[in-house]
């Protein structure tokens, strides 16, 4: 599949220099455009955020601009490459007040510039969407991954994973041990998916105790079974002996009544792309939520595959399978 061109914004108050930068940066993969003043830069960013900002102007006003941008949780992930003339930086320069992601020194080496640009863009998509707890990619990457599979008509299964009885576990043992469960679950899924030789294998962290796996439809049974088995096996070791032997957690609610909660388990809801006519991620997510409600009704760890099937107009779903 052809990648869309990455957009590079060049911030430089000097129009002639900016023009030269645009010429240098423009490649088959990269579309570069120059912006000379701050207001237009803001406008452009809010209108359609670039994939990379290259800044040659690093005076105090621009630094403030950059800090404001990077303080926003959404734009924090936008990589910024700073270009510095000789003499602007010294061995004692610090970057606490200058939130750039990489730097290049003038005069530019053209090859190095292009490599750095490519690296900065990849790095941001690789790391910056990662969930800090599980280090798995987050919603932005999930969305992009699903959308590109839809756009390419590649059959896939979207599995929603949710930890049952997670809240009582957290209440009983504290959030730190809850975090351990999140990391443990993330590892189990990653290794189950990676262990297959399939070409589609993705694990993401939606947030909290919700995860996603994107896998090949024929692997759903094997991978889900493996994940559930391993989770049940290992989750048991995160309890104190007393609770583990008893098989449930006891807690006292606000009214002082004693409640019993079952031990942690996992619910997985799977939706298969070729069965449905969905064209965007939201539809998958809605269908999966419905299945998740059903699977969560069951005791213990379970997975359930959405068996609903959309009739397709003209487009034979079997063909879609064969095409890939």
């Amino acid at each position: 599949m052809s990648q869309p061109q990455k957009r590079i914004m060049i911030l430089d108050p000097d129009p002639a220099r900016a023009e030269r930068m645009v010429e240098l940066m423009e490649t088959e993969d990269h579309f570069a455009y120059a912006v000379e003043d701050m207001n237009r830069a803001m406008q452009q960013i809010y209108n359609e955020a670039p994939d990379l900002i290259v800044m040659t102007a690093l005076g105090d006003r621009w630094k403030t601009f950059l800090r404001t941008l990077k303080n926003d949780s959404v734009y924090r992930y936008l990589p910024v490459l700073g270009l510095f003339a000789e003499g602007m930086l010294g061995p004692t320069t610090t970057f606490e007040g200058l939130p750039i992601d990489d730097l290049l020194l003038l005069p530019l080496n053209l090859d190095e510039l292009r490599l750095r640009v490519r690296l900065a863009i990849v790095k941001s998509s690789r790391y910056l969407d990662a969930n800090p707890l599980s280090r798995l990619p987050g919603n932005y990457t999930i969305l992009q991954t699903v959308q590109s599979l839809i756009d390419n008509k590649t059959p896939f299964a979207l599995c929603y994973i949710d930890i049952d009885s997670f809240k009582p576990f957290n209440d009983r043992y504290g959030f730190s041990r809850g975090d351990e469960i999140i990391r443990m679950t993330a590892r189990i899924m990653t290794n189950a998916v990676r262990g297959s030789t399939d070409s589609i294998s993705f694990v993401g962290h939606i947030g909290g105790d919700d995860f996603i796996m994107i896998i090949e439809p024929q692997s759903v049974d094997a991978i889900c079974k493996q994940v559930l088995f391993n989770f049940d096996m290992i989750a048991a070791t995160f309890y104190d002996d007393e609770d583990r032997m008893r098989g449930y957690i006891e807690s006292v609610d606000r009214k002082g009544a004693k409640n019993r909660f079952p031990l942690l388990s996992l619910s997985i809801a799977a939706v298969i792309s070729v069965n449905r006519n969905f064209t965007h991620y939201g539809e998958f997510s809605a269908a999966a939520s419905e299945v998740k409600k059903a699977v969560k009704q069951l005791d213990g760890s379970n997975y359930m595959v959405d068996r609903r099937y959309d009739k397709k107009e003209g487009d034979d779903p079997q063909l879609a399978l064969v095409e890939t």
Binding site: M184, R187, I188, T190, N191, R194, G195, N230, M233, I234, T237
Partner: peptide, 8 residues
């Protein structure tokens, strides 16, 4: 358990 969590 370690093998499951570390991966192959």
């Amino acid at each position: 358990h370690a093998l499951v969590l570390l991966g192959y």
